[in-house]
Design a binder for these strands. Sequence first.
DNA 1: GCTGACTATTCCGTTTCGGAATACTCCACG
DNA 2: CGTGGAGTATTCCGAAACGGAATAGTCAGC
Lengths: 193, 193
Amino acid sequence: MARSQQATPTGYALLGLLSFGRHLTGYELKQFADSSLRFFYAAPAMSQVYSELDKLEAAGFVNGRETTVGERTIRVHSISRKGITALRRWLAQSPVGPPSLKHHLALRIFLGHMTEPGRLLEQVAGQRSWCEQTLTDLAIVRDGLEDDPDGRWSHARIVADWGLDYYRAELSALDRLASALAEGSPAVVRPRT
Amino acid sequence: MARSQQATPTGYALLGLLSFGRHLTGYELKQFADSSLRFFYAAPAMSQVYSELDKLEAAGFVNGRETTVGERTIRVHSISRKGITALRRWLAQSPVGPPSLKHHLALRIFLGHMTEPGRLLEQVAGQRSWCEQTLTDLAIVRDGLEDDPDGRWSHARIVADWGLDYYRAELSALDRLASALAEGSPAVVRPRT
DNA sequence: GCTGACTATTCCGTTTCGGAATACTCCACG
DNA sequence: CGTGGAGTATTCCGAAACGGAATAGTCAGC
């Protein structure tokens, strides 16, 4: 029976989205991920959403129901009782790894000896505006969670607030970074090796 | 000639490590990554270090030299002139994507409606101690960069300082997270702040 | 001379990414 | 109406990244 025991972390993340109780197509699930997971857990690729759904369904964790809309048949997914159990177990038992971060800008700075200082500052500025954008996007999401009669989204609110903290800190770290670079650069007339 | 044009991001990251001028085995390169990249750019798997080195060498970006040590032949790698050019070009031209983050703890919180509150707080505490550990590790690395006669590590210092900011912020966000959770579930007594 | 930690490399299967291809739906505009 | 473009829904494919285990030599200490 129990096929490959467990789903993959991404599988559980998607299962978790379904645990909010909605019945979603792969496409809708992807949209949901893009407006929630994306702020703290790199949203999976479209293709992966579908392949995970297949696997989750094979494991009996989600139920897929086909519906016909005009010419085409679409597949709507919901979490199964078995899926709920599996998810609970995973949440309770699987070790929580350290966050994994790929900070492309930090890599650029680290290798700053191979770059013109001006370019570096541009890149920091670019990052800064991305960060501001993300912050406003998140603020909008957070506001949308205000109206929550049955308390289903209370943890989502906590995470959103955490995210606001996180991105605000990111922003100010970016500013300090910019100063540090500006301080260091003008003095440094470097002969390129 | 030019095989697949460019290396992969991880390839460039490793090439960047070699750009500090040392001649390293795959193993040493991995160690170097583990003590530098790891703080801001998930260090690549051992296996990947070797496969990237192969690709970089095939592209002419690194020179591999075999040396014999007793019974075995080891391969020492250094960046080539062509590699330096390629790296510079990549740093100057490739767009700097947004940081990609997989915050496993945040996912757990987000799905908190499927978990016991106590378990959640434990997980936050676990994350907190990981974070403290990382912070002290990074502080040690940062100290080691103090002695830098030829200024080669000046950007590394800037990144290290940025990282200290980053992880300190992470830590306090974690504490606020813990309070938010504790508030929501009054049953639980909060451990020391 | 043995043992165990460290150095060095390779292999293999799975997970994840990313983008393109396909095709239907629905609405707005002429 | 009817057509075209934005949005919905799914699939395919190849490349990138991960992770852990297997193999094997080196070197120190006992």
